[in-house]
Design a protein around this nucleic acid. Structure first.
Lengths: 140, 140
DNA sequence: TGACAAATGCAACTCGGTTGCATTACAATT
DNA sequence: AATTGTAATGCAACCGAGTTGCATTTGTCA
């Protein structure tokens, strides 16, 4: 069973409906490996001659993020990107082609680094965001 | 000699002028320890009854960032912040009071982490951004 | 002091994102 | 299958950060 179906079932149980936009967005993001922008999502969930209003898309992305099923991402001054929720990770952003790749964010050395900062700065860390900008293998 | 004076001298040599807004912005950011937002800057560079147009402030911040004297910062979905350029560092952002604190970004362990990612992901890293979100000592 | 280019102000604009409100459609109930 | 309550949708208007074009002012240098 796909994660999307599981989510839709959960949502239905709590009174939310299985709307067309909702399902299309979930399936799109579940199958896509890298985060997508709102216009991109808007374009790709269009089915047959049906397009969805941008308000709908924004509201749905907000709704699903609020429920914890999606995660919103902001890279620099750029527009918002959305991806399926999963274990915490970091991002590689290619400044050549714009591709965004997820990388593991749960490494031991990383946790050490975080604990070090907490200790040295007397600061309780709740989350962090880390992005690398550079050139991927093909754009090198 | 203040850094601001030095920068103004450099700029004059290359044909840029020592305008009031420019000088006020540089002095403000040189003396301020944490990054400031554009409205904040706009407010604080006002001198006597003279206020500067937002276009002027935006253009000046852009100009000085382009020259490498200032650095633009983006934390999440928030508006742009500006700070005086200096050695690379990371940021602690308190979600209680909103304070932003610079922390050292040139540690050995951090460089190791970065090299590891380059190696494992076959990605040429040119820059990165790292922010920690949490609670400072007083907001704890 | 005059002249040229840089800096400034103003108004209008762009664009991502939001809000209020009327309309449509999903799904539970009869 | 028809009814009904509410969630989802569309539309238009709006918001706020940031930008642009153009006319005006001001700093610097000859």
């Amino acid at each position: 069973m796909q994660k999307t179906d599981q989510i839709l079932t959960e949502l239905r149980k709590e009174g939310s409906r299985q709307s067309v936009a909702r399902e299309r967005i979930l399936r799109l993001l579940e199958s896509h490996l890298s985060p997508l922008s709102v216009p991109e999502i808007e374009r790709r969930i269009a089915v047959d001659s049906r397009r969805f209003n941008k308000t709908t898309v924004y509201r749905e992305l907000q709704f699903l993020s609020g429920k914890g099923y999606l995660k919103e991402l902001r890279l620099r001054n750029d527009t918002a990107l959305y991806e399926f929720s999963g274990p915490h990770h970091h991002h590689l952003v290619c400044i050549g082609c714009g591709a965004v790749k997820d990388i593991d964010g749960e490494t031991e050395s990383w946790h050490n680094e975080e604990r070090r900062v907490e200790r040295e700065e007397n600061f309780r860390i709740l989350e962090h965001s880390l992005e690398f900008f550079g050139l991927c293998a093909t754009c090198r």
